[in-house]
Amino acid sequence: MKKLSARRRHPLAALVVLLFALAATGGLYAAFAPAGTAQADSSSQSLAIEEGKKLYAVGCSSCHGLNGQGGTDGPSLVGVGSAAVDFQVGTGRMPAQQPGAQVPAKKNIYSQAQIDQLAAYVASFGPGPVAPTKDQYDTAKGDVSAGGELFRTNCAQCHNFAGKGGALTHGKYAPALDNTSPKHIYEAMQTGPQNMPAFPDSVMPEKQKRDIVAFVRHTAEAPSPGGMDLGSLGPVTEGLFGWIFGLGALIAVAIWVAAHTSKAKKS
């Protein structure tokens, strides 16, 4: 101790103390720093954003602008979130083929990995709805009957009571939900694609969304005990079918009966 104390005025003492302090700070940081996996995640996340940026430049930027700011041909993508990208690209609606009243669903040309990269890039523009996890849209966990009631309150006015879709104004329409996957139904409710209003968690909690997804899939998959559902359009198609085919068959029988005489001498 004496030796150390004797050298405390040595010209290199300050340097030694400084080195000790730096080593202590670094050591403490290494001990208490956030886990290393987070660092790895953020680097893979930034990698995905990099890849997504390339995909975005090729497929999206001509309408939505190089930085997602939007333009005359497409809306701004700031704040739409990864859920909107996953829905729009996953159902083939984006990239759009041509402008029009409504962009239709078509064959999706991106792999899920590419969609995730695009979503990561677009989500980096600003906070927005996040694509759901499998558990959020697990139809097995949803309550079909509660979902039916919610569906009739919130969705059936446009999508029809059986999810068969319907017409809106000026060539727009609510699409049929028969072939929409649970994840995409969930994302549509979160983000409100095109002219569909959004149903954020604040007005329709996650559990209610899962119930609705369960109801829509149940309705699409359960067989109809009545046989041909004639588009599930209700009394219009059913009445038309009855008048044309039911009455038509009766008239045909009546004509057949009258055309065959029972007289012995055929005239």
């Binding site: 919610l150 309150t153 919130n154 409100g192 209003p197 959004a198 149903f199 604040s202 007005v203 329709m204």
Partner: peptide, 19 residues
């Protein structure tokens, strides 16, 4: 109508619809 809870202004986001 969905949750039976009073609605707050921040619950209703732009573009959403609630009864």
């Amino acid at each position: 109508m969905n949750t039976d809870e009073p609605l707050k202004a921040e619950d209703v986001t732009v573009g959403s619809l609630v009864f």
